[in-house]
């Protein structure tokens, strides 16, 4: 299951790249996996978007989905 992972802002600085491919069944599993790999993410507040929609609960992922990690917005 290939998921496209996009990161932005401070999260890209922690992960070291803005785009990568990951494998995970659902958003909670992905989050846990990333926090284990990049402990710096643990203390960061971020939202998760699946295919450009911000999710509020654990969401199943399928091949080809795009998951984005969104730190607090600061446009304007």
């Amino acid at each position: 299951m290939a998921i496209k992972l996009l990161t932005f802002g401070q999260i890209t600085e922690i992960i070291g790249q803005s785009e990568s491919t990951v494998n995970a069944m659902d958003s909670d599993a992905l989050k846990a996996q990333l926090i284990m790999q990049f402990p710096g993410l643990k203390d960061l507040q971020f939202a998760i978007a699946v295919n450009k929609y911000v999710i509020n609960e654990n969401t199943g992922l399928k091949d080809g989905d795009t998951v984005a990690l969104l730190p607090p917005f600061s446009g304007g």
Binding site: F8, G9, Q10, A49, A68, L70, P71, P72, F73, S74, G75, G76
Partner: peptide, 24 residues
């Protein structure tokens, strides 16, 4: 709405070369 919901990030750059990520 833009400040709250638009996925845009501002990196504040300082005169000493450091930076922080702004929060709205």
């Amino acid at each position: 709405r833009i400040k709250e919901q638009a996925p845009v990030w501002g990196r504040e750059v300082f005169d000493d070369g450091r930076h922080v990520w702004k929060q709205n």
